[in-house]
C-alpha cells in the first residue's frame, strides 16, 4: 500500500552533525559495502573499470564552501534518505513497492514488486533514491533494517552501518518520535533542522548546524593584541629590516 500510515509508533532516523563531519566518506563506503550484500543487494555498479564508472549508492557526501571571505568555512554534508513523515516518493509509487512502515517509520522499497518506473526518484527533492541499472529497481537507504533488528549482532552493532563507521561520531541513530531519546535531546540542544522545510515532506532525519567559529567575538578566544614593537630608530639597518619584513609578509 502506498498510502501513508496515519501515524508511526516510532520515528527511527539519523541525526547528522555538520560540526564534526570531516567528509571522510567512511559512512558512504561502509553503507555501500553493507548494502551490496544486505537487504538492497545487489547494489550494482556499471562500467566499474571503464571510462565512466558509476553505480547506485545510498549515501553521498558533498563538501560545500559556505559564507564569504574570512568568515567562510568548509562544511561536509552527507546526504541520504531522510525517512520523511509525508514522503511523496511513497504515494506516487504505482505498485505499492514503496512504503512507509507503520511500526518505525522507515521508508522502504520492496525489491520484488518494484517495476523501476523511477517516478519515486522524481518525487524526492533530496535525491535519496538511486536507480540500479542492472537490477532494474530503485534503491534507497533502508536505515540498515537488516542490522538494527538483527539479534545475532552484538547490541552495539545494531545500528546503521554508516553510524557504526563514522570515526568522528557525527552520525547518531535513534527514535526521533520519542522526545526523551538521546537523538531528540541532541536535536533540541543543538537546534537541529530540517532540509527544505518549505517543501513540507517533514523529514525525520535532522541535521545539526556547525558550531560558532572559535575566533568569533567571545573574549576568551579573541585574538591577542599585537605585542608592542620597539620603536624604530630610523637607522639604515632598521629601514632594511622593515622593508624585508614587509616584503616577506606579502
Amino acid at each position: 500500500m502506498t498510502s501513508l500510515p496515519a501515524h508511526t509508533e516510532k520515528k527511527l532516523g539519523l541525526v547528522i552533525d555538520l560540526d564534526t563531519c570531516v567528509g571522510c566518506h567512511a559512512c558512504a563506503t561502509s553503507c555501500k559495502e553493507w548494502n551490496a550484500g544486505g537487504y538492497s543487494a545487489p547494489l550494482t555498479d556499471q562500467d566499474a573499470h571503464g571510462a565512466d564508472p558509476h553505480g547506485a549508492w545510498l549515501n553521498r557526501i558533498h563538501s560545500y564552501e559556505v559564507g564569504e571571505g574570512e568568515a567562510s568555512r568548509t562544511v561536509h554534508f552527507p546526504r541520504s534518505c531522510l525517512h520523511c513523515e509525508t514522503p511523496a516518493c511513497v504515494t506516487v509509487c504505482p505498485t505499492g513497492a514503496s512504503y512507509k512502515r507503520a511500526e518505525d517509520g522507515i521508508v522502504l522499497v520492496n525489491p520484488d514488486t518494484c517495476i523501476g518506473c523511477k517516478l519515486c526518484s522524481w518525487a524526492c527533492p533530496y535525491g535519496a533514491r538511486e536507480y540500479d541499472y542492472d537490477d532494474g529497481t530503485m534503491k534507497k537507504c533502508t536505515l540498515c533494517i537488516d542490522r538494527i533488528y538483527n539479534e545475532t549482532f552484538a547490541p552495539e552493532d545494531r545500528i546503521p552501518a554508516c553510524v557504526r563507521a563514522c570515526p568522528t561520531g557525527a552520525r547518531h541513530f535513534g527514535d526521533l518520535g520519542d522526545p526523551t531519546s538521546a537523538v531528540s535531546q541532541l536535536v533540541q540542544e543543538r537546534e537541529g533542522f530540517d532540509l527544505l522545510p518549505e517543501m513540507d515532506y517533514r523529514p525525520t532525519n535532522k541535521y545539526l548546524p556547525p558550531r560558532p567559529r572559535r575566533d568569533s567575538q567571545s573574549p576568551s578566544t579573541a585574538p591577542a593584541t599585537e605585542p608592542a614593537l620597539p620603536r624604530s630608530t630610523g637607522s639604515l639597518a632598521d629601514q632594511f629590516f622593515a622593508w624585508a619584513d614587509k616584503t616577506l609578509a606579502r
Binding site: 555538520l18 567528509g23 558512504a28 565512466d52 564508472p53 558509476h54 553505480g55 547506485a56 549508492w57 553521498r60 557526501i61 558533498h62 563538501s63 560545500y64 564552501e65 559556505v66 559564507g67 564569504e68 568568515a71 567562510s72 568555512r73 568548509t74 562544511v75 554534508f77 546526504r79 526518484s121 527533492p125 533530496y126 535525491g127 538511486e130 536507480y131 541499472y133 533542522f193 530540517d194 532540509l195 527544505l196 522545510p197 518549505e198 541535521y207 548546524p209 556547525p210
Partner: peptide
C-alpha cells in the same frame, strides 16, 4: 535551504560527492 546552511552565507559546492555522474 537544501543544506540548512543559509545562516552562514551562500552555499557553494567545493568537492563533488563522486567523480562520475550518478543516476540522480
Amino acid at each position: 535551504a537544501a543544506t540548512g546552511l543559509g545562516r552562514f552565507g551562500t552555499v557553494r559546492p567545493l568537492d563533488p560527492p563522486h567523480t562520475q555522474s550518478n543516476y540522480v
